[in-house]
Amino acid sequence: MDPRKLLQLASIIEQGSLAKAAKILLVSQPALTKSMDRLEAELGMTLLQRGPAGIIPTAAGELIYAHARQIKDEMESAQGQIRANAGTDRTITLGTLPTLGSNVIPRAVGRWRLQHPDTLIRVVERVQVELLLGLLRCKFNFIVGQTEFFDIFPDGLKQRVLFRDRLRVYARADHPLFKLEAATLADLAQYPWVCPMVGWAQRNVLEKIMAAEGIKVPAQLVECGSVDFAKSLVESSEHLALLPSHSVSDDSHGGAIKPLPIVLPVMKRDIAVIFRERAPLDQASKDLITHIEALGADLSSGQC
Rank of each mutant, 00 (worst) to 15 (best):
D187M: 03
E235I: 06
L162T: 03
I257V: 14
D165H: 06
Q220H: 14
L243D: 00
L177R: 02
H175Y: 01
K268F: 06
H175E: 01
R269E: 06
M210T: 11
C195A: 15
R166A: 04
G255A: 06
P192C: 02
G225V: 06
V169A: 00
G199H: 08
S245L: 14
E213R: 05
R168K: 10
L242S: 05
A256G: 14
A201G: 10
H175T: 01
E238M: 09
L177D: 01
M267P: 11
F229L: 09
C195N: 14
A272N: 00
V248G: 09
A171E: 02
R172T: 05
L264S: 10
L162I: 02
V198H: 14
I257A: 07
S252T: 12
E207Y: 03
V266F: 03
V234A: 12
M267N: 09
L167W: 13
E238Q: 13
C224A: 15
V263P: 02
G254Q: 06
A182N: 11
Q202C: 10
L221K: 08
H175M: 04
I271C: 05
A256Y: 08
D251S: 15
E223K: 01
H253C: 09
V263T: 12
E235C: 05
D251M: 15
M267I: 11
R164D: 07
A183D: 04
V198F: 15
R269Y: 09
C195P: 03
P176V: 05
A230H: 07
D251I: 13
L260S: 03
V263H: 12
L221V: 06
E223N: 08
H239K: 02
L260Y: 00
V198P: 14
A230K: 15
P244M: 11
A183V: 08
D174R: 13
P176D: 04
I262D: 11
V273N: 04
L206W: 00
K268M: 09
G254V: 02
A201E: 09
G199P: 07
I257N: 02
C224D: 14
G254P: 03
L221F: 05
F178L: 08
L233E: 07
V222Y: 06
A272W: 01
V266P: 03
A272P: 03
D165S: 12
V169T: 05
F163Y: 15
D228Y: 08
L242M: 09
D270G: 01
D174W: 08
H175A: 00
Q202S: 15
L206E: 03
P196F: 11
V263A: 13
K216G: 05
E223P: 00
S247F: 02
C195R: 15
C195M: 15
Y191C: 02
R168G: 01
P244Q: 09
G255W: 07
V263F: 10
V248R: 08
A241L: 04
K231F: 13
P176F: 01
A182Q: 12
I262G: 08
